[in-house]
Computed example of a mutant assay.
Amino acid sequence: MDLLISVGLPISLAIIMLSLGIGLEIADFRRVISRRYPFAIGALCQVVLLPVAAFATVKLFGLPPEIAVGFMLLSFCPGGVTSNILSKLAKADVALSVSLTAVISLLSILTVPILAAWSINHFMGEDAPEVSISGLAIAMFLITTLPVAIGVSVRRFAATFAQKIDAPLSRLATALFVLIVLAALAGNWQLFVDNLGVMGAGLISLNVALLLIGLGLARAASLSWNESKTISIETGIQNSTLGITLAALITGTESGFSPLALPSAVYGITMYAVAIPFLAWFRNR
């Protein structure tokens, strides 16, 4: 189990982020300049409103400290390739989705370590493990930003090769995601059973609220329907694999998968149950 967490988990996330990078082009980053307003709305939802909503949910449901930290870690993790796929299925603005994913994923090496350290100290108090913000930032760079940059470079300078490996790499990323979620659940099974009711209700409520908040804010900002659908999905869909990995980076591998990873693992399952009705609505309207 220690080998899976210390070696397999970071490598798996790096492959997932490489898969994201392979699907990106330089134009996806340039597009932010020409579409500043919808991008700003999406960034506001992801970076500010999402953690605030998670904090409110944790307080409302009275979650235990470790589970509360897990909720907050999940809220700091941008959607990744999953949100891009769901935007495509929803017939939303995929270009906007990809641009948000590209930029926010790169910015996460600055935002996530600081917010994660604050959350742990706030909720766990004296029981909080020591968190090195610089160490966490370096780890985030190595397993998220660097693979994305490599993927973008491969797409830029070896487009044919990138197209060949895109689909197999995506399938591998999906398989690794499933394995990580199952391993995290198995490693905290009793805690999962004991907190399933309140944790599941909290995650589903948060997921639904975020999808609606993102949609409502986008409509209030007079964005188009397709842009609004994208903002909704980008706000409501998080990268649960990154949440699980963050938990492991913070607590180490000595005791198996950290309880801090449990909300992300459960969310990796519940988000699809929540997203499917929204996708059906988005596609048919």
Rank of each mutant, 00 (worst) to 15 (best):
M1I: 04
M1S: 09
M1C: 08
D2T: 05
L3R: 08
L4H: 05
L4T: 02
L4F: 13
S6R: 12
G8L: 11
S12P: 09
I15M: 14
I15S: 07
I16W: 11
I22T: 06
V32M: 03
Y37S: 04
I41T: 02
A43L: 15
C45T: 05
C45W: 08
Q46L: 08
V47C: 07
V48H: 07
A56W: 12
T57H: 07
V58M: 02
P65M: 01
I67W: 11
A68T: 03
A68Y: 05
L73F: 07
P78M: 08
G79P: 07
G79M: 08
S83P: 01
N84G: 06
N84V: 04
L86G: 00
L89Y: 09
A90C: 07
K91S: 12
A92G: 15
V94Q: 05
S97H: 06
S97G: 07
V98D: 11
S99H: 03
T101A: 04
L107V: 02
L110M: 11
V112Y: 08
P113R: 00
A116H: 01
H122K: 06
G125R: 04
D127Q: 09
A128K: 00
S134W: 15
G135I: 03
I138H: 03
A139L: 06
M140C: 01
L146M: 14
L146H: 01
I150F: 12
S153C: 11
V154G: 06
F157H: 09
Q163E: 15
I165P: 01
A167K: 13
S170N: 09
T174G: 14
T174V: 12
A175C: 12
F177K: 01
F177C: 07
F177V: 02
L179E: 11
V181I: 15
L185T: 00
G187N: 09
N188T: 07
W189T: 03
F192H: 01
L196S: 06
G197L: 15
M199W: 10
G200E: 09
A201E: 10
G202Y: 09
N207D: 14
L211W: 10
L211P: 01
L212V: 14
L215A: 12
L215M: 13
L215R: 05
L215G: 00
L215T: 00
L215C: 04
A218T: 03
A220D: 02
A220R: 11
L223C: 10
S224K: 02
I231R: 09
I233R: 05
I237L: 12
Q238E: 04
T241M: 15
L242A: 10
G243H: 04
T245G: 01
L246Y: 05
T253L: 03
E254H: 11
S255M: 12
S255I: 06
G256H: 12
S258V: 08
A261R: 02
L262W: 10
A265K: 07
V266K: 04
V266Q: 06
T270Y: 13
I276V: 15
L279S: 03
R283Y: 15
R283E: 14
R285H: 11
